[in-house]
Design a protein around this nucleic acid. Structure first.
Lengths: 175, 175, 175, 175
DNA sequence: CATGAATGAGCGTTCATTCAT
DNA sequence: GATGAATGAACGCTCATTCAT
């Protein structure tokens, strides 16, 4: 899967399975010992990366802390992971918009970020978006994060500042 | 190009050129009279759709009006166009993340929304994002719009309300 | 199709489509311009050969002649065609037992030999097989012909004699 | 080999060796401890089935009995075995026409039915086929048997009657 | 310029066979 | 001897692109 991530970053989702196998140092046929089809590989990879990202985001989370502080912690974790794992993030983005993901995968994806959704739910409840659907709020957070991560990656010297900048923007929206 | 849009929506970016040609009612070979390669078609299509969207967004814009009102007008135009032209929007999204777009195309894309960028520039100047790079602000507006449009499409009965909801969220971020 | 026949004779039904295409002097992809799939090619080829054989068998048939004479004429035509077109016959045999033929093809096959079946029907009516199902009588004739053709091919010097020998055996069975 | 028979019936001769091994309850690699190649397995299987059929056909044969009666006994044995072992018969048929059988196997095959050939030889000697090659007579008997077995299998209620019907047809040819 | 048959490189996948354990 | 993961050649089929008409 690491090999797949590496190879997809440079060759896109149309990367030949043979190339992925080679990158992994195995014969092309061997790939199909582990994944029934290329699509299957993509789906598993997507969930693995998504889960990793979700786990990274909730590290060191103190449930007792203030909501704003909790959220900022998640934000810091999340953006840091994305900046440090830009390949994984890029592949995640590509897979997310591809039409290779099965409905099952799409359905399983939100569960990897359930803890964050819970937190967001509590934030939303008392703010201006109290009547907006959760999906919308999640989408807003997601896309604000994406923009922030892009900015942090482009100008990594000021990464910390940008991180805060993005979070403040998010918080203005939510509360 | 209309045919391409229609066909790509249902078949994805891997749609055979022969299929696009058939949808357009011409011979498969004829397609290559107008576009050197499939990639070329994609690039031209992307710019055309982007331009159309940009033009739609600035319709009826009154430069004399208040900034907030101007921005809301753009927002209404934009989201309405996207809801009414969901096929075009979908294709635009697919092309945007594809690795078929040339650097030239990516460079030319912002110019289609120059008027909006100008407006955004003025809004930003006096707000909390005054020190953030323009690209970041544009990305925020873009992604907020995307989320809003999704919401409006899913629940079109309350489209107007959702449009306002999204705009308010955006405005909170920007000012 | 001629090329397919030639190539299948030497390589069996597992002959690569690329080989068939090359034998035909076209690119491997071109084969699929004419036949949707390899299976499709096999089905069409089967019916073509079967039809050709059926047509050959009923050449110069005089409906006014005695039944025995008519039958002998068919027999002579049939065995001669088979001996002269041993490649086609061999491919026909291979296709006949393969599991590539669709039910449609199997259903269409008897129609190519309808005239012979009619004749056989009249012969059977007054003989010892009057109560046997037509399918059985057809199978008997078929297999007797096969054995005869093999004999004629192996020892072509006495082909004519063998042809008569086979026919007499058939006639003894039928009448 | 039983497993191979079972598996080939449902999957054809292109059945994966892995499938055959699984059906036999052994690891896929183990299959190659007993058979050097897949072709080798096919050849051995063919001879085994052929031998079994030949043995079944000559059961309870009384050399003292009249030729016709002896032949009928063989005929009854043979058709009964084939009807009761339709899987084996089907596989035998598939193997017989496949191009996997080596010349050695083809050469060894007749020996499995030597006793029947002997009997047939004596029948032929005094009949209308006295001058026909033995191979031809064997082929006739074979194919008549095949047709009869098919009929018996399709309409097993009247199996006995069909058996007699087929034998009478054969006998008319031979004597 | 329009056509559409022809091209052939390239892909995902299969499977007989090997071999380290 | 038994295992089953690993192998890699081979296959059927697709499709962007070409070009003679």
């Amino acid at each position: 899967m690491e090999a797949a991530t590496r190879f997809i970053v440079t060759h896109g989702l149309s990367a030949p399975t043979a190339g992925i196998a080679k990158e992994a140092g195995v014969a092309n046929g061997s790939l199909f010992t582990y994944f029934e089809t290329k699509t299957d590989l993509f789906n598993q990879l997507y969930l693995e990366l998504k889960t990793e990202m979700g786990s990274a985001a909730v590290k060191n989370l103190r449930p007792a802390a203030e909501l704003r502080e909790q959220c900022f912690q998640v934000w810091r974790n999340w953006t840091k992971w994305a900046v440090c794992n830009s390949e994984k993030r890029r592949v995640l983005a590509q897979l997310g918009v591809s039409d290779e993901l099965t409905p099952e995968t799409r359905a399983a994806a939100p569960k990897t970020m359930a803890a964050i959704a819970d937190m967001l739910e509590r934030i939303r409840a008392n703010g201006p978006l109290s009547k907006a659907p959760m999906g919308f709020v999640v989408a807003l957070m997601n896309s604000t994060a994406e923009a922030t991560i892009d900015l942090m990656s482009q100008d990594s010297t000021n990464a910390k500042k940008h991180c805060k900048l993005g979070f403040d923007a998010l918080w203005r929206m939510l509360s």
